[in-house]
Simulated assay, not measured.
Amino acid sequence: MLVLSRRVGERLVIGDDIVVTVIEVRSDGVRLGIDAPRDVRVHRAEVLEALTAANAEAANADESTAAALRRLAPPAAGGTARGTTAPA
């Protein structure tokens, strides 16, 4: 891990196209500005960890959870419910 000391207004360049600028230093934290290309995803670590955990939990849903969700969804307009046949 690289550890640097920076003052307000000073920048850190990562690669050719990512610039991190120190915006403000307070007693309770540091505000950073990040300039990066749109195709570079920038996330706070705690948000990414929570999203990953939520996705893992959703992927492990049991059949009773799936059935409860199916009951919440209205039937498709003009169609029939999945797994049923229309009257002849």
Rank of each mutant, 00 (worst) to 15 (best):
P87S: 05
D17P: 03
I34G: 03
G15Y: 06
V13S: 06
I34D: 01
A76S: 13
V25S: 01
V25P: 00
R11A: 04
A61F: 10
A58S: 11
T65A: 11
G9C: 04
A61L: 10
D17Q: 05
S27D: 05
R11M: 03
A77S: 12
R70T: 12
G33H: 05
V47M: 06
A68N: 08
G83K: 10
V30L: 00
I23Q: 04
T21H: 00
R31M: 03
T84D: 02
R6W: 05
R7C: 06
D28G: 03
V22A: 00
A61D: 12
E24W: 00
A68Q: 09
D16T: 09
I34Q: 01
R82M: 11
I14L: 14
E57I: 06
V3E: 14
A77D: 15
V20I: 14
A58Y: 14
A58R: 13
R44F: 07
L32D: 01
G33Y: 04
A68S: 11
P37V: 08
L48T: 04
E57L: 10
H43C: 08
G79M: 08
L69T: 12
R26D: 08
G33F: 03
G79F: 09
A88N: 09
S27W: 00
V30E: 01
A66T: 13
M1N: 14
T85E: 14
A88P: 12
A36V: 08
R26P: 00
A86W: 07
V25D: 01
A36L: 02
D35Y: 12
G9L: 03
A58I: 10
T52Q: 13
A86T: 09
R26I: 00
G33A: 05
G33W: 04
I23R: 03
D39S: 11
